[in-house]
Amino acid sequence: MATAWFCFLALMVALYVVLDGFDLGVGALHLLLARDGEEREQATAAIGPVWNGNEVWLIAGGGVLFLAFPRAYAAAFSGIYFGLIIVLWLLVGRGLALELRHQLDHPLWRGACDTVFCLSSAALALVFGVALGNVVRGVPLDAAGYFSLSLFHILNWYALLIGAFGVVVLACHGAAFLAFRAEGPLAGRARRATRILWWPQALLFVALIGPTYAVRHAMLDKLIDHPWTLVFPAVAVGALVSQPLLARAGRWLAAFLASGLFIVGLLTTMAAGLYPSVLPARQHRPHGLTVDNAAAGHHALLTALVWWPLGMALAAGYFFFAYRMFFASARRSALEGS
């Protein structure tokens, strides 16, 4: 049953990164792609109605980690204390800049909000990548199940590489979102950005296989030992390759979805390679937290198995409804404009 919760957790993380990922990507590219007030308006309005709902997936994901693996929750969040508090501050800055920029119609105010929005989005993409990098690399857990990483140890070479990859992937994802959602010159620049950013994304994807093998070769072995799990990297590769093809065909919604699928492929590959570890120790070290020693009690996991899918089905319903509404009206206004 703990395994089921491991899958749910991976699902929540993947959904969060896919959904809030395009918000962050749009933010990171905001100052580069959107050149004048009207375009910035367009870019922020495109994510305005949905970013808050997308961010809830982070809260719900944190909730699942707390619910199912409280030991891992306690160890991870206290161990990278500084990193996490910085994430919280950035989330405060990002959310406020986005939500409050429309409250005042003054170029200085809008400029300040746009800058905070852009910088905090880019920094969040980096820090989330760094956090995932540290999980893959493993953390120095002690016998009591805690660890402590100072800021510079959080920012180790491997984690920074994954962080850079995170920025590129999410920027590409955000550009793909704007490519299909925006209009006029903004859409044109976003489309060019997806084409340009695809190259570093693909290069880093291939280049990171080596370092990942170096910090945790069990990960690759595990995928090969259980050949069915190779479907996850296959999804990632397939989605990556199809992105420029779909873009060339002008199918921008499909290209955006492929970009999301690429992220899902990456994260599920990571989850499959880590299982059964929830929070692994460094390579060849003891005290790693796994689905067995970090899971909550039987009754808790069992009852949550009843209500959680129900809540997810409800949430999926809300999202389907809201996205259909926003995107339908975007298409309508696009038609009216042409």
Binding site: N52, G53, E55, V56, I59, A60, G62, G63, V64, F66, L67, A68, P70, R71, Y73, A74, A296, G297, A300, T303, A304, W307, W308, G311, M312, L314, A315, Y318, F319, F321, A322
Partner: peptide, 21 residues
Amino acid sequence: GGVIGQTLAMEGVFAFFAESV
């Protein structure tokens, strides 16, 4: 966490999604 993880996760799943959307 094995106890109050339930209620905190339920808040996210049942309340926040509905409220924000």
